[in-house]
């Protein structure tokens, strides 16, 4: 554990709290992508299957349980008490529509879930169920934020807490990269290219967002995506 990894984890943890605080405070989930949240739930459920058979530290175990339960709570809220404020029209991917309003969304399944699973079958750290699901979760996490970013792209501007949420998740990924560089130079056998490549791709997806978020903060202006 180093300061970069710890800060990254804390930002990740804060991101859930920001989102939940916002939804409860405004009694609304407007601007939040249900698709991204469901994808994150799948990510955590697949990756943390090892809760049942491997123990790293109490810290890791507690965080894993928190990530799964917080995301499950967010998804549950979006499907129940805040359902009426869910902005389904802006949470559509190209290719959705065949299953109008029903889950799982056609576009997400075809463009995101299936490709990630196929990639996991090809590039993994062992051809066994857990390893394939683990690799799948790594790839899926890399692109899980896409529906949320698309939603932001469609609405052009986001509500402050939603932006803060995206910022926290993006910053957490950025800090993980610094953590990997640090580990690479300080640990003897630290080598995980699959995670590094996916992590870098994932972080790059936030680059655009970060740029406009920073501009808005710097100028004290409203966050607005171009054209």
């Amino acid at each position: 554990m180093n300061i970069f990894r710890l800060s990254g984890d804390m930002l990740h943890l804060i991101s859930f709290l920001v989102l939940m605080y916002r939804m409860r405070g405004q009694r609304s989930c407007r601007g939040v992508s249900l698709k991204s949240q469901i994808l994150f739930l799948i990510v955590f459920c697949c990756r943390y299957l090892d809760l049942f058979f491997s123990f790293v530290s109490l810290y890791n175990t507690m965080m894993k349980i928190f990530f799964i339960s917080a995301t499950a709570t967010i998804v549950y809220w979006m499907l129940t008490k805040y359902r009426s404020s869910y902005d389904m029209d802006n949470d559509k991917l190209h290719g959705d529509g065949s299953f109008m309003g029903h889950l799982p969304p056609h576009g997400v399944l075809g463009y995101i879930i299936v490709p990630c699973f196929l990639l996991a079958l090809i590039w993994n750290e062992g051809f066994e169920a857990f390893e394939i699901l683990w690799a799948f979760s790594i790839y899926l996490e890399a692109v899980a934020i896409l529906p949320q970013l698309f939603m932001l792209q469609k609405t052009k501007e986001g509500e402050a807490f939603t932006l803060l949420y995206i910022f926290c998740v993006g910053a957490y990924r950025g800090l993980y990269i610094i953590n990997w560089i640090y580990r690479y130079f300080t640990e003897k056998h630290y080598w995980q290219p699959l995670v590094w490549v996916s992590g870098v791709v994932q972080t790059l997806l936030y680059a655009d967002f970060f740029y406009y978020y920073w501009i808005a903060l710097r100028d004290g202006a409203k966050f607005q995506l171009p054209g």
């Binding site: 491997s54 530290s57 890791n60 965080m63 062992g126």
Partner: peptide, 10 residues
């Protein structure tokens, strides 16, 4: 072992 070590992150 090393495999476990690779999965010590979240």
């Amino acid at each position: 072992d090393e495999d476990d070590k690779a999965k010590d992150e979240l």
